Amino acid sequence: MMLEAQIQPADIQDRDGALPVLKEVRRLFPFIERIFADGGYQGTATAAAVRELGVW
């Protein structure tokens, strides 16, 4: 089930564009415990940023 969607410019990488989406999802649905993503979102910087948004 899709909970949030945003249209972003083509020059934004998937891993960078995910953070604003996750912030909004966290605000709207604070009870979510688990998220899934494909390989386009991997990387230590992305993982650290997602951890800052809360416990997933």
Rank of each mutant, 00 (worst) to 15 (best):
M1H: 11
M1L: 15
L3R: 10
L3T: 11
E4P: 04
E4T: 10
E4D: 13
A5C: 09
A5P: 02
A5N: 08
Q6C: 03
Q6V: 11
Q6T: 07
Q6K: 10
Q6F: 02
I7D: 07
Q8S: 10
Q8M: 15
P9F: 02
A10P: 01
A10S: 14
A10E: 09
D11N: 15
I12K: 02
I12V: 15
Q13P: 11
Q13S: 14
D14F: 02
D16C: 06
D16Y: 01
D16E: 11
D16A: 12
D16P: 02
G17W: 00
G17P: 02
G17L: 01
A18H: 00
A18V: 11
L19P: 01
L19I: 10
L19A: 05
L22H: 04
E24G: 07
R26W: 08
R26P: 00
R27M: 03
R27I: 01
L28R: 10
F29P: 00
P30G: 12
F31Y: 02
F31M: 03
E33N: 06
E33V: 06
E33S: 07
E33R: 09
R34I: 10
R34D: 15
I35A: 04
F36V: 11
F36T: 14
A37T: 08
A37I: 07
D38C: 07
G39L: 04
G39A: 14
G40L: 14
G40Q: 12
G40I: 14
Y41R: 13
Y41A: 08
Y41P: 03
Q42A: 03
Q42I: 12
Q42F: 05
Q42K: 11
G43R: 01
A45C: 10
T46Q: 07
T46G: 03
T46K: 00
A47F: 03
A47T: 10
A47Y: 07
A47P: 00
A48Q: 09
A48F: 01
R51V: 07
R51F: 01
R51C: 05
E52I: 00
L53A: 03
G54L: 12
G54A: 13
V55R: 11
